[in-house]
């Protein structure tokens, strides 16, 4: 089970994930996020993983896919509140070479100038 919560602050889409992100739930995250990006004027994404209890490589794929979308329009993606096991997956796949990591949501938002 994955719950996807959206909040917008100026041109930043804040996505809070709760539950488990695998191949089954990745589809829902992809569809909802892409729909939001199409409808609303968003440049950057902040991804809050504080309440994400499980993730596998399907999560890497869907996060990378959304990163590519915002990057195409000159935006950035910042990830915050990541747990140790999920951080290891990010490190293994080299995601930190392209995404910024912040401890807290407030830091991530400040990075993008909307705190």
């Amino acid at each position: 089970m994955l719950t996807v919560n959206f909040a917008q602050k100026q041109d930043v889409l804040l996505i809070r994930l709760k539950g488990e992100l695998d191949h089954h739930s990745a589809k829902q995250l992809r569809e909802k996020t892409d729909h939001y990006l199409q409808e609303k004027d968003v440049k950057h994404i902040v991804l809050n993983l504080e309440e994400l209890t499980f993730m596998d490589s399907s999560g890497i794929g869907v996060i990378l896919g959304r990163y590519k979308e915002v990057q195409r329009a000159g935006g950035e993606m910042v990830v915050c509140s990541i747990s140790t096991p999920i951080k290891r997956l990010f490190e293994m796949s080299g995601l930190f070479k392209i995404l910024r990591l912040e401890h807290r949501e407030s830091d991530a938002l400040r990075q993008l100038g909307v705190a």
Partner: peptide, 10 residues
């Protein structure tokens, strides 16, 4: 399908 190709590596 947005596969990351990381399954076996993990």
């Amino acid at each position: 399908l947005e596969r990351s190709g990381m399954g076996f590596t993990i």
